[in-house]
């Protein structure tokens, strides 16, 4: 692992159109190859933070750099180029349920194709082979021709990981990837993400609710509360008590402060 940052947040704030504060003066530097876990209550801004990296959300002020280049003002083709290099995993898998697994996995590759070629489904032999390998990597080779909605939730999420892998990403963003899964499949999905990180040195950022999983898989944990970065420690220094504090609702914290 090198210390050269792949993602840098500089004084990043985001206010939504209706006036709600999304992010508040975030400063953060993420080195290449890190497995970063973001914890915090729902609505703390975890999803927003994640989506500012691939510009699915725009920020109000500040600057974000990916690989040393500011991404805030990217447009059109350049923006799509950025997104192509960043894979994303979603809580609800976001597969096209009625399409085959093969087509879903291949759809991760569209950023490398012209509109008309991809529209006609003219994927190269290499990419079709790559899709098979990506699927085998997550242990679902035999599902290549199945329809996505025939798969269990855990299997669907692993197909989504294969789809992200098709992009040849430098970074993978996983937004609550296990929130809709049962404990058993949770393990395999987290393992798949960890393998992406270890074998291919892909920087992985995961939003999680589970503190114990965060401690098992992360290199570093950051905590958000009401859009503010309130916690940032490497895994060696993380304690159970710190994490509990992040999950305290603010109202209770303030009350206890008043009482103290």
């Amino acid at each position: 692992m090198t210390d050269e940052p792949i993602i840098e947040f500089k004084h990043v704030s985001k206010t939504y159109q209706n006036g709600t504060l999304g992010l508040k003066d975030i400063n953060l530097s993420i080195p290449k190859g890190q497995f970063l876990v973001v914890v915090g209550l729902s609505g703390a801004g975890k999803s927003t933070l994640m989506r500012t990296i691939n510009r699915m959300h725009d920020i109000s002020t500040g600057d974000i750099r990916v690989d040393g280049e500011s991404i805030v003002h990217l447009k059109g083709k350049e923006l799509r180029g950025l997104r192509r290099s960043i894979g994303m995993i979603f809580q609800n898998f976001n597969l096209v349920k009625r399409s085959s697994v093969q087509r879903n996995v291949l759809s991760g590759r569209v950023g490398y194709y012209s509109t008309w070629k991809s529209t006609l489904g003219l994927f190269s032999k290499d990419d079709k082979q790559k899709a098979i390998e990506a699927l085998q990597r997550v242990g679902l080779g035999e599902k290549l021709y199945s329809r996505a909605d025939e798969l269990s939730g855990g299997q669907q999420q692993r197909v989504a990981i294969a789809r992200a892998f098709m992009q040849d990403p430098k970074i993978v963003l996983a937004d609550e990837p296990i929130a809709s899964l049962d404990p058993l499949t949770t393990e395999s999905v987290m393992d798949d993400l960890k393998r992406l990180n270890e074998e291919f040195h892909i920087t992985v950022i995961v939003n999680l609710h589970s503190v114990s999983l965060a401690q098992r898989f992360a290199d570093r944990i950051i905590g958000l509360r009401d859009g503010e970065l309130v916690y940032d420690e490497p895994i060696s220094k993380v304690t159970e008590k710190d994490l509990e504090a992040i999950y305290q609702p603010v109202s209770i914290v303030k009350k206890s402060e008043v009482q103290a």
């Binding site: 950025l82 979603f90 609800n92 096209v96 399409s99 991809s118």
Partner: peptide
Amino acid sequence: MDFGPSEALMSSGGNRSQTLVFATLPTVLP
């Protein structure tokens, strides 16, 4: 409709027509 698949396509660098063909249409066609 479920906008998830469209979001996924966009996040992987697909342009408008690719999103339409790979995510929107297969979702609403049935």
